[in-house]
């Protein structure tokens, strides 16, 4: 199964070839079906957003709305500050991405290119804490945010997502592999300052790694749940995930409105992902190279 399809068959018999083609078609058919099944729950959710209340409770459930309506969308936008929650999430994710990119780029560069023993120890500590899940230490972190008086604010949210151990690791690996020492030395001999070297030589060489990290960081914050749930507890400060999760527990909420709200959230983030797929896959695949 794992034989690459480009390897030419050693026998020229057409029967063998035909059998091989049929197998490939069967595999394609299966994978297409499987792929559709994977996205079907989300597609059905989006379809529900456009159904009338009668259709939503009809049995058996329909897949494509019979008379599409925008009532659910307008109702949910009137009932909830959905756009504000989306803005909160967007601002949180964007600021977190910027912070993670900045801290990872600088720390990754220094840890990758400067040879001091103390830096190795620092790197080991960063690696070791990467194993610890956020959920383990979020309660003390909550009290730290509280002592700063930053509960229910964007800044409070941000504190949990300023650094990413994996990001520092990823950039360090990239610095070691794709920033040649000779280039840095040549620049130093030419009299370039360290800051200039970092911004005009190192950062451009890290463009693709930073791109992958940016997508990872953005989606990590965008889909965060437990942390915003405890830190941002006023209706105005909810992120979209928390806002939606609490909205769905309300008693006057029906499936149409919920689906509409979900669709409004899903469509931009899934679209963004499809556009940035290459970056994202690269970033996630990088996490597998930890060993």
């Amino acid at each position: 199964m794992s034989i690459p399809s480009n390897s030419a068959p050693q026998s020229g018999s057409s029967k063998w070839n035909r059998k091989r083609k049929l197998t490939d078609w069967a595999i394609d058919g299966f994978l297409i079906l499987f792929g559709v099944m994977m996205v079907l729950p989300l597609l059905m959710l989006v379809a529900n957003a456009f159904k009338t209340p009668q259709e939503l409770v009809s049995w058996p459930p329909t897949f494509i709305p019979n008379n599409p309506t925008l009532d659910n969308l307008t109702a949910v936008l009137n009932d909830t500050p959905l756009l504000l929650w989306m803005f909160n999430s967007f601002a949180f994710a964007t600021l977190s991405t910027i912070a993670i990119l900045a801290t990872s780029a600088i720390a990754g560069y220094v840890l990758g290119k400067f040879k001091y023993r103390s830096l190795n120890i620092i790197f080991l500590i960063i690696l070791a804490t990467a194993i610890v899940p956020f959920e383990v230490y979020m309660i003390p972190l909550y009290f730290q945010v509280q002592s700063l008086g930053m509960l229910n604010s964007l800044w409070g949210l941000l504190i949990g997502y300023l650094v990413m151990s994996f990001g520092i690791f990823l950039i360090r690996q990239n610095v070691i592999h794709s920033v040649p020492d000779e280039l840095l030395e040549a620049a130093r001999i030419d009299g370039a300052g360290e800051l200039w070297i970092f911004f005009f030589i190192v950062v451009p060489l890290l463009r693709s790694a930073l791109g992958a990290l940016a997508v990872l960081a953005f989606f990590q914050a965008w889909t965060a749940f437990a942390w915003p749930l405890i830190v941002a507890t006023t209706r105005e400060s909810y992120t979209i995930e928390v806002g939606l999760a609490l909205f769905q527990t309300g008693f006057t909420v029906d499936l149409g409105k919920l689906s509409a709200a979900s669709a409004i959230v899903l469509i931009p983030s899934v679209t963004l992902f499809v556009l940035l797929r290459k970056n994202f896959v690269e970033g996630v695949a990088g996490t597998g190279l930890k060993e």
């Binding site: 994977m38 996205v39 729950p41 989300l42 959710l45 989606f219 965008w222 889909t223 749940f225 979209i240 995930e241 939606l244 999760a245 769905q248 709200a261 979900s262 669709a263 959230v265 899903l266 983030s269 899934v270 992902f273 499809v274 994202f280």
Partner: peptide, 9 residues
Amino acid sequence: IPHVASLVP
């Protein structure tokens, strides 16, 4: 896609 879709929706 399910991996990046927002958890709650």
